[in-house]
Structure formats: C-alpha cells, structure tokens
Write a protein that binds this DNA or RNA. Structure first.
Length: 300
DNA sequence: AATTTGTTCAACCGCTCTGTA
DNA sequence: GTACAGAGCGGTTGAACAAAT
C-alpha cells in the first residue's frame, strides 16, 4: 500500500493508492450491494474509505462485482475476442458487452499480452515467444483468423444482403465443425492481403428449414469483386446466430438494431448447427484453396 | 539457492463523453 | 450555447509472482 497523497481528481484530497485491503473491499462491497444507484464520487465520503471515487468504481467493476467471471478465458471466448477486435478495434468496453462476466480491463490485458507474443513470433524471436504451449495455442488461433483461412470443405448457397440493392449469392465454405460461440469463415478464397472492410452486414442463410440470421464481422473483397461490389468472403459469429421468421424483412441496419438479435445466449446455444451442415474434409478442396491463395498473392 | 528475466493483471492516469444547470 | 461535474474509457505502469539461468 502506498502512502496517502494528493490525488489530481477528488479535489486533491489525501487518498490511498495501491492494492486494496480486505477491509476496504468489504466496506465497498457492503455499500454497493445495498444501493441501487451509486454516485461514485460520494462513495468515499459515505463509506469512510480513503480512496478516490474513481478508484472505488474501478475496484467494483473490475473485481468486486459478483457477476464477474474469474479464471482463464475459454477457447470460445478467445475466438470471440480476436474476431471482435478485428471487427471494431480496441473498443474493450464494447467487446466486454459481448462477453457476460468479463471485464474490459481483463480483455484488454489478455489482448495486450497476446499481441506482444504475436509480435515476437512474427519477428522471429522464438526464445521469448515460445515459452509455453499455451502461447503457441493462442497464437495459432490468432493466425487462423488473421492470415490463414482454412480450406473449404463444404459448399452451400449463402445469401448476402447488403444495403438496399445488393443481393448476391456466394458459395459457403466451412473449415471444420464450428462449436457454438465460435467464429467461422465463409468462404476462405480471398487472402487477408486483399482489401477488406468492416461494414456491418446481415447474412441470411437460406435452408429448407427456414432462415438463419447472423452478424458478419468482416467482409473480404477481391479486386474484381470490389469493383462489382460483390463480397467473396466473410466471418460469422455462431454465437450470434438466431432464428428469424420467414417474413422478417431484410435490412441493412447494424445487428444491434435488429429486434431478433437480442435473443438470450442460452437459447442460441441450443441450436445444433450440425443438423444443417456436413463438415467432412475434402483434400481436393484444400488443394484448390491453396492454389487460389497462391494465385491471388501473385496477382496483387 | 540466488539472481535475473519474463508474465500477469490490478490499479492509476489523463482524456473523452454525457448529462445537467 | 456553454461550463461544469461525474462517469466511462483505453493506454500504461509497476508490484507480485513464475520461470529460467
């Protein structure tokens, strides 16, 4: 615990800094849990804590809040962090909203540590970067999203509805059986070196059974398709898949504005994607994919 | 066993955003 | 329209711990 000193906020009152004691935690917890509306700037005065109001707020939202899920991130959560970071950048608070129980600070810390490791790997500094198998695992996940879309294994028709006029059919390819709460790639023909944008889009998958709806986090455009305003690939979050009524009108609004996107996650997770897709791996597709990647990299 | 180096994560800082008078 | 206060956010720091030497 650091000595009390003048804080720049809090009217320059003397406040304590550093790690919180058990007693301080108990005091803050007891106060917040018993008050619906907390005015953080008044908390030190009302509780007797020698802390800045901002510090109290931070302690609550990052540690004391009983809704926080402590412990390591799951593979699904890591996937979601990578895909959301790619979509919206370092908007940690927004990313945290997609991950109940996780704090923006926790996600930011995770991202920063993994980014550092990725940098070390990309700069051929294996001694530092390969210090644990966990590191390699995380980096392989990251690489798969950023650089190496996996080979296509299955083809279906996916209907992309973009803006008011665009209404295009593209082939769908899935690299492997995607667990729920996972991101997968449709289709992986365009390498990441090609132009991409992050325009929010709605992806409608047409099937005999009705319609599936999902957010698309990023769209790939080849030079040709870009000229034609025709996306060749996209990322899709399986955890955001929801059923919609057949008469639900298509819309170009962002997902959060869609009434059917607010379905509880528990309901979403009950959906079994295996009922509708066959994820068998075909070697021929893999070769075709590798060839297209090679060709594209030499065209650009 | 002691020291150095690397990693994690809680906490701080300063800035921006938002609501209100 | 503007000034102010409080809340929120993202970048950064540094203490504590773990791993390597």
């Amino acid at each position: 615990m650091q000595m009390a000193h003048e804080h720049k906020c809090c009217n320059k009152q003397k406040v304590r800094l550093g790690a919180w004691s058990t007693e301080e935690d108990e005091t803050l917890f007891a106060y917040v849990i018993n008050h619906d509306q907390v005015k953080w700037s008044f908390v030190p005065e009302l509780t007797g804590l020698k802390r800045c109001g901002k510090s109290c707020r931070l302690r609550w939202i990052n540690y004391l809040n009983p809704n926080i899920k402590h412990g390591n991130f799951t593979t699904e959560e890591i996937s979601l962090i990578f895909s959301l970071q790619k979509s919206i950048g370092n908007k940690w608070a927004q990313i945290a909203k997609h991950m109940p129980g996780r704090t923006a600070n926790e996600i930011k810390n995770f991202w920063n540590s993994k980014q550092k490791k990725k940098w070390l790997v990309s700069n051929n500094q294996p001694n530092e970067a390969s210090s644990s198998s966990e590191t390699i695992h995380h980096i392989s996940i990251l690489e798969s999203f950023y650089q190496h879309p996996y080979p296509p294994t299955y083809t279906d028709n996916f209907q992309l509805n973009h803006g008011s006029n665009m209404h295009s059919l593209v082939d769908c390819s899935l690299n492997e059986e995607p667990p729920m709460n996972q991101l997968y790639t449709i289709p992986p023909y365009a390498p990441s070196s090609m132009a991409s944008n992050n325009v929010p889009m709605m992806l409608t998958i047409s099937h005999d059974h009705g319609f599936l709806n999902s957010s698309v986090s990023s769209i790939w455009m080849t030079p040709t398709s870009y000229a034609q305003n025709f996306p060749t690939g996209c990322h899709m979050h399986t955890n955001l898949i929801t059923w919609i009524d057949d008469d639900q009108p298509n819309s170009s609004k962002p997902l959060e504005d869609q009434p059917y996107s607010s379905q509880p996650l528990e309901e979403v997770e009950e959906f079994d994607i295996n009922e509708f897709f066959n994820f068998d791996l075909f070697e021929e597709d893999q070769m075709k994919f590798e060839a297209s990647q090679y060709n594209n990299s030499h065209v650009i």
